[in-house]
């Protein structure tokens, strides 16, 4: 599903965020990216949906070299990749339902599809009764569920999560992880960057550890350290 071939990313000022990273991730895998801040986790995530382009090396998503993708095709790549961030990125002036519907609307989905998909996905994330609420009326955990619903409503092949529990307390994080696990079980590949030791140790999934831009460990059913 995803393959990094000797990928290096250097930012301005010779900051090396990722160095000679080679890794393969199969379909419907669940992968944790761990490592301290600045180790290259976010860069890894951003390279996959072409938010950033690698300085060297090649990245394949679903068999395609995304380095060769012309810029007008990038949106179509992103329709197959859902993304979830630590800060949710919800629109404050739209309700929960509208936030999720927006993601379908702007990729041109017809209204009848939106009208059936949005309630279904909100039920899936457990917010069936909050469609009419605004984000500020929800708890942090609920807001992250909305953002997951938005990322998953288009049924992407891959879900990227950059520290999705970074702003949440441990109890709430457990609920979010259960939700990501549920999504993973539908066959979606989930890649999650985190430095939440408790979650990684409890889930026992594949762990890729980064340190100063290098992959120092790649372990099946791994732990945080």
């Amino acid at each position: 599903m995803i393959k990094l071939d000797n990928v290096t990313k250097v930012y301005k000022g010779d900051v090396v965020a990722l160095r000679n990273a080679s890794v393969e991730i199969a379909k419907s895998e669940f992968v944790f990216l761990v490592g301290p801040s600045g180790s290259g986790k976010s860069t890894f995530i951003r390279l996959l949906n072409k938010d950033q382009t690698p300085s060297a090396g090649r990245i394949f998503v679903a068999g395609k070299d995304i380095g060769e993708l012309s810029s007008w095709k990038v949106p179509y790549l992103r329709r197959n990749i859902g993304t979830v961030y630590q800060d949710f990125k919800l629109l404050a002036n739209k309700t929960v339902g509208e936030n999720v519907a927006f993601a379908l609307e702007v990729i041109g989905r017809p209204r009848h599809v939106i009208q059936t998909q949005v309630p279904a996905i909100l039920d899936l994330v457990g917010l069936g009764n909050k469609a009419g609420n605004f984000p500020h009326e929800l708890s942090g955990g609920e807001q992250q569920r909305v953002s997951i619903a938005r990322a998953f409503v288009n049924r992407p092949l891959i879900l990227l999560a950059d520290e999705p529990t970074g702003n949440l307390d441990p109890a709430t994080s457990v609920g979010i992880m259960q939700l990501l696990d549920k999504i993973n079980k539908t066959g979606t590949t989930v890649i999650m960057a985190t430095h939440d030791r408790g979650i990684v140790d409890r889930m026992r999934r594949r762990v890729i550890e980064l340190d100063r831009g290098e992959i120092v460990r790649d372990q099946v059913r791994g732990v945080y350290e």
Partner: peptide, 17 residues
């Protein structure tokens, strides 16, 4: 800018934006 950011995230085409 926030709407635009989300639109890019979910794969709205450049022309749509």
């Amino acid at each position: 800018r926030r709407e635009i950011e989300v639109m890019k995230l979910v794969g709205a085409t450049n022309w749509f934006i």
